[in-house]
């Protein structure tokens, strides 16, 4: 008898558990995302708090700038050149259909300034630097180096996170500029050099249609992306746990989250910046 009732109860209880788990599965990720964003923003806030406390970490700042900015130049040059070239190829063939190939220069330049430059530069930096931040801080966390900083009365956020975030905010816009310049060069080489678009039209149209606002829009986006990707990379590394495996997971999460954030932020920033700039 008692056996029977227990057997009858078990499936029902299991069903309730399953339902609970399903609800958890459905809402859990959304809550986790919000929590993760909240935590990342909190770390970002701490990083700025410590930026204005003494001492100012010149050495860490310069090292970060070198690693994030200078060392990223080769890959930015390469990617920028080919993105500009490919985009030019596409645009020329499309614009030829209605004899508007004189507009190729300005179209490509505008797209590079406003969209492709900031987004692709930031994604390249994420791949190279955001991942490295997560790995480096993550291994410092699991080998207790971050605790060691604490015990030596050195704030690890100020020592490790602030320089990386500030350097990214400064360097990603500069890399974006490099990207745009070589991108336009790549477009020029293909359009004028290979496909025979008129050189004068290509250049004068750029001058005529591309305003300073377009460049500013790109720079603003790039610095926001720099802030996002470095905060995410640092957050994931700084709070990594669970040994080498944990560091690997943190790195993966950092790259995925940063790329998604860049693309989502891009939409909203475009919206806001168009509204602001009119």
């Amino acid at each position: 008898m008692s056996n029977g009732s227990a057997a009858a109860q078990t499936p029902r209880r299991r069903m309730a558990q399953d339902a609970g788990r399903l609800v958890g599965k459905a809402t859990g990720p959304a809550l986790n995302v919000l929590e993760e964003i909240g935590n990342t923003v909190t770390l970002m806030g701490q990083a700025f708090f410590w930026l204005f406390r003494r001492p100012f970490r010149w050495r860490q700042m310069l090292q970060s700038m070198e690693f994030i900015g200078v060392d990223s130049i080769p890959v930015i040059l390469l990617v920028g050149l080919f993105v500009g070239a490919a985009f030019s190829l596409q645009t020329v063939s499309a614009f030829r259909m209605f004899s508007a190939d004189a507009m190729v220069g300005s179209t490509v330049t505008l797209a590079l300034c406003r969209e492709l430059g900031p987004v692709l530069a930031a994604i390249m930096v994420t791949a190279r630097v955001g991942s490295a931040m997560a790995t480096e801080l993550g291994s410092m966390r699991i080998t207790e180096q971050i605790d060691a900083l604490h015990t030596m009365a050195v704030n690890p956020v100020q020592y490790l996170v602030t320089p990386r975030i500030v350097a990214s905010i400064i360097m990603v816009p500069l890399l974006n500029m490099v990207f745009v310049v070589v991108g336009v060069l790549g477009a020029y080489l293909v359009a004028v050099g290979v496909l025979g678009v008129d050189k004068g039209y290509f250049l004068s149209n750029i001058d005529w249609y591309v305003d300073i606002e377009d460049i500013v829009q790109g720079l603003v986006k790039a610095s926001v992306f720099g802030l996002a990707l470095s905060s995410i990379g640092c957050y994931q590394g700084f709070y990594a746990k669970g040994g080498a495996r944990g560091v690997g997971l943190a790195t993966t999460r950092a790259v995925v989250q940063a790329c998604v954030s860049i693309l989502v932020l891009d939409y909203f920033l475009t919206d806001v910046l168009f509204a602001v700039q009119g």
């Binding site: 080998t143 180096q145 605790d147 060691a148 604490h150 015990t151 030596m152 009365a153 704030n155």
Partner: peptide, 23 residues
């Protein structure tokens, strides 16, 4: 709070079990 602890921590030196050197 963490920044208040910094004062206290200056009284301490600590050797970690796995040394925790900055690599």
């Amino acid at each position: 709070k963490d920044y208040q602890l910094n004062e206290v921590r200056r009284k301490f030196g600590m050797l970690f079990q796995y040394a925790a050197l900055f690599d």
